[in-house]
Computed example of a mutant assay.
Amino acid sequence: MVGIVLVAHSAGLAAETAALARGIAGADAPVVGAGGTDDGGLGTSLDLIERALASVDQGDGLVLIPDLGGSVLTARLLTEPGRVELADVPFVEGAIAAAVSAAAGAPLADVLAAAADAWTYRKVSGP
């Protein structure tokens, strides 16, 4: 399965979003959060992200889903085209769509496409 790492400025946000995604996609979905700094503060940590990637790497590719700003820049440092891809998607909706797709056994390109489709999800109808 494709592994998914949620990169957030807050450890709590990353962990709870990963838990929500696993709750919807299935407990075995390879989704983990990498949030906050090494000392538990707000920010991002390259080391935490690298450890998270290793923990969900099953050899089928990896998707990084950052929340905003600096997490995007940090995640970009770890991308490897065709192996570790950065998804520019809404954080929660993209995480869930990617997790469901990954849990179904979709290949990396399809997991990225499912996450990107989250941009079309509407919460209310109309303009």
Rank of each mutant, 00 (worst) to 15 (best):
V2A: 06
V2R: 04
V5L: 04
V5C: 08
V5H: 03
L6M: 06
L6Y: 03
H9W: 09
S10T: 13
A11H: 09
G12A: 05
L13D: 01
A14K: 03
A15S: 14
E16A: 15
E16T: 15
E16V: 11
A18S: 06
A18Y: 09
A21R: 03
R22F: 05
G23R: 11
G23T: 11
G23D: 07
I24D: 01
A25T: 13
P30M: 14
V31I: 12
V31N: 02
A34V: 05
A34P: 03
G36V: 04
D38F: 02
D39L: 14
G40V: 09
G41H: 05
L42C: 06
S45D: 02
L46R: 13
L46K: 13
L48S: 05
L48V: 04
L48W: 08
A54I: 12
A54L: 11
S55I: 09
D57A: 05
Q58W: 07
G59S: 08
D60C: 10
V63R: 00
V63E: 00
I65K: 00
P66S: 02
G69E: 10
V72L: 15
L73A: 14
L73H: 08
L73W: 09
L78S: 06
L78R: 13
T79M: 12
T79Y: 06
E80I: 14
V89W: 04
V89R: 00
P90K: 05
P90S: 07
F91D: 00
G94E: 11
A99M: 03
V100M: 12
G105A: 11
G105N: 02
A106H: 10
V111S: 12
A113D: 13
A113L: 12
A114V: 13
A114T: 11
A114W: 14
A115C: 01
A116E: 15
R122V: 11
